[in-house]
Design a protein around this nucleic acid. Structure first.
Lengths: 148, 148
DNA sequence: AATTATTAGTTGCACTTGCAACCAAAAACA
DNA sequence: TGTTTTTGGTTGCAAGTGCAACTAATAATT
């Protein structure tokens, strides 16, 4: 008897698809409720990182957001233009540019995060808080394991 | 006392980042071990869907893979060119094009899936099988809930 | 100290993607 | 039956992305 593997029971596909679906939900909510105009997923990803820790280098952002260095460069060009962040060349090592949130950038946290957190209402039907908790914890640990 | 929300404890960010990390792992493994030359994530996503069910319409693929119709059109142009799938115009409704795997396309399943499934070794350090099981189940239910 | 290697960030290029406009076929409606 | 609306798929366009080549600054090696 051959056991046919279920392609859907694979973390790669599950995370990617659920991730995109949730992103789309957030994007839709933002538009509906006239939220902030920064809709690019990468923009938000970078901001999220900066909310956790300020003053990191572009390279660090590239690693944690899992984007190319070049992509981060261009993302920051935009965020800087929008007065959400500033680039400061590191005194002691002029290769590094440290990224800091502006006042406007910090404010954005309170406006944006609720959308990201509440995007799951409705999606979690039939899922207990405990299960959800485990799921998030596992994902967080996977992230830590994989981020090198 | 104000409780600072943790941006990382959000399903949107966790799934997206873990998803990308895992995709990159699979891509790397494929290259290292001289696997199939189809590296595009979208290509693989479409194939996965077809392994689950053959003969669906492009529109169905767009929904389940969460990609734009246009993207699916172009993805199928490629897969058809590679002799992995064929498009068959539906007799009873000429708007529909049914997508079928070729022999080569079916073969690919056995070659590709192991990469996707085993990509998690090393990543799951410190995570029990039970926890992983719950995580996958939750993700699967989220997917079903969100896919409309 | 001078040369070489490495690292951070930028830029050009090719490719992917989503959106919107479009075409063809079918369904709904008058 | 003829007109309008909806649906599936394709295409043009603009924006995002990864890769590789490049520059500037620092570290490592001789």
């Amino acid at each position: 008897m051959t056991i046919k593997s279920d392609p859907y029971d694979s973390l790669v596909f599950l995370t990617n698809r659920v991730g995109r679906l949730l992103s789309n939900e957030v994007r839709k909510k933002l538009e509906e409720e006239g939220g902030p105009q920064i809709l690019q997923t990468t923009h938000i990803g970078v901001l999220v990182d900066l909310w956790v820790q300020d003053g990191v280098r572009q390279q660090d952002l590239a690693v944690s957001t899992i984007k190319d260095k070049g992509t981060i460069t261009r993302t920051l060009n935009f965020l800087e233009q929008e007065n959400l962040v500033v680039r400061v060349t590191d005194r002691s090592d002029k290769r590094n540019k440290r990224i800091y949130l502006t006042h406007k950038g910090k404010e954005m946290e309170h406006r944006l995060l609720p959308y990201a957190e509440h995007a799951t209402v409705g999606a979690t039907d039939g899922i207990s808080p405990e299960e959800l908790r485990v799921c998030k914890d596992v994902l967080a640990r996977l992230y830590k394991n994989l981020i090198k």
